[in-house]
Write a protein that binds this DNA or RNA. Structure first.
Length: 422
RNA sequence: GGACAGGUGGGUGAGAGGCUGAAACCAGCUGGUUGCUAACUAGCCUUACGAGUAACAUCGUAACGAGGGUUCGAAUCCCUCCCUGUCCGCCA
């Protein structure tokens, strides 16, 4: 959530920066915010003054219990105040609610050093890694796995619906191996602490990381007010909501592997074949909580932690710095890691690492105690390390042998019970 | 799921309509004294928002699990919900 005080002090900054995020009506939006804010504070101030006098009179009343005439007079006074307070209270909370709804629906301000652009075509190439070898037999991953009889889309459709998949035998094992492998690398080499977290969260958590209120239709909602997480970023980051962390405890680095759930509304016709875009998929997620001044270094660090997985798996990839128009709602700066998919002859996103600055922390009231004893908002970062489903896709296609089998990269063999091929 | 008991500051824990933003103790912080690795002592020690300030200070309002209600006045009384504990049932 953007800081209302900062908007008050420098509205133009926000107008210009929101334009970078394709919010063309930002002047109107900021004006509306400032008006509501002013209105709210006026109501609030009036109300509090009245409450103050009410409190004082109430005190006097207690001292004048025995003086009937005075008691009645003062009682009447307070009753009058009460009515006015009621009205002002309605007005102020009405303004506040409107203000808050708008603020909660506005995306984060992009970092000043990222490319300004409309969409993904203006993302900036940072680097690539690994050789793309031209191969004779190139097949899409779903065909490869079907030929090996280790994947079953039809049965998944029967029991669940479209965009679900069943992995079988060695491929199911591969998923499990990948999860263990990634968790081991992040906990043993990258300094993250492993968690096993709920995949069902309450509405506050979904607001905290920014899935709500704007992206309701992308989520799976359970009855009550509970939601299936679209990423374990939600569970991990919200662990620190409404808390004040000691300075010396920072940074916190969390990693978790969970199933993730996405409604994929609005993705009709996109990646309908195969397991690139599913309603449910496994993902290993990295989250860092850190003092804001160190957040961009931490982002670079996080990217290299994700890269390490790809390097150990020896998969060709490239890194893109997202343009302002292509970033997620909560992000101020995002690097995408894209893995090479031979069948599509292009790179596809396999990890997205973002700094959210204090944007999420403001929503979830996550603070740290600074050296001089002040409570400041923390910065939050998250990144995939990696999306397991898409890693499977990449392995199937990049490790396909001429006989139709698929080799297992050596980094994974310790996790595959001696199996070296699918 | 049922019955009972609870939910108060960093922790323990009092308070049972106005004297309580909250006793006492512990921890922590700042100083004083003695000296030696501890004792004594004075003070400070929740948060959010608003006003105010160059920044402090200061002032106001609110918060005792959450949300409503009763009352001139609620941590305290009433209702709903959430959570924790214990016992029972069910269950991986």
């Amino acid at each position: 959530m953007l800081n209302i005080k900062e908007i008050r002090n420098n509205p133009d900054f926000f107008i210009q920066n929101l334009k970078k995020r394709n919010l063309d009506n930002s002047e109107k939006l900021i004006k509306e915010i400032l008006d509501l804010d002013k209105e709210y504070r006026e109501f609030l101030e009036k109300k509090e003054k009245l409450l103050s006098s009410r409190n004082q009179i109430s005190k006097e009343l207690g001292q004048n219990k025995n003086d009937q005439a005075k008691f009645n007079e003062l009682s009447k006074k307070v009753s009058d105040i009460k009515k006015q307070v009621q009205e002002l209270d309605d007005q102020s909370s009405n303004s506040f609610e409107k203000l808050n709804n708008i603020l909660m629906s506005i995306p984060n301000i992009p970092d000043e050093n990222i490319p300004v652009g409309k969409d993904e075509t203006e993302n900036l190439f940072i680097k690539d890694y690994g050789k793309i070898v031209s191969k004779k037999n190139i097949k899409p991953h779903d065909e490869i796995a079907e030929n090996l009889n280790i994947i079953d889309f039809e049965t998944a459709v029967k029991i669940s619906g479209s965009r679900f998949v069943i992995l079988k035998d060695s491929l199911a094992k591969l998923e499990r191996a990948l999860i263990s492998f990634m968790l081991d690398v992040h906990t043993q080499e990258n300094g993250y602490k492993e968690y096993s977290v709920p995949v069902i969260v309450n509405e506050d958590a979904m607001y905290g990381t920014g899935q709500l209120p704007k992206f309701r239709e992308d989520q799976f909602q359970l009855n009550n007010n509970q939601w299936l997480i679209p990423t374990s970023e939600v569970s991990l980051t919200n662990m620190i909501s409404n808390s004040i962390i000691d300075y010396e405890k920072l940074p916190l680095r969390f990693v978790a592997a969970t199933q993730c759930f996405r409604a994929e509304a609005g993705a009709a016709g996109k990646d309908t074949k195969g397991m690139i875009r599913q309603h449910q998929f496994a993902k290993v997620e990295l989250v860092s909580i850190i003092q804001p001044e160190f957040r961009l270094n931490e982002l670079d660090r996080m990217v290299s932690c994700a890269e390490l997985i790809l390097q150990k798996l020896d998969l060709p990839y490239r890194i893109m710095l997202l343009s302002s128009g292509d970033m997620g709602f909560s992000a101020e700066k995002t690097f995408d890691l894209e893995v090479w998919l031979p069948s599509q002859n292009k790179y596809r996103e396999i990890s997205s690492c973002s700094s959210c600055g204090t944007f999420q922390a403001a929503r979830m009231k996550a603070r740290y105690k600074s050296v001089d004893g002040k409570n400041n908002l923390v910065a939050t970062l998250n990144g995939s390390g990696l999306a397991v489903g898409r890693t499977i896709v990449a392995l199937l296609e990049n490790y396909l042998n001429e006989d139709g089998s698929v080799s297992i990269p050596s980094a994974l063999t310790p996790y595959m019970n001696g199996l070296t091929k699918l």
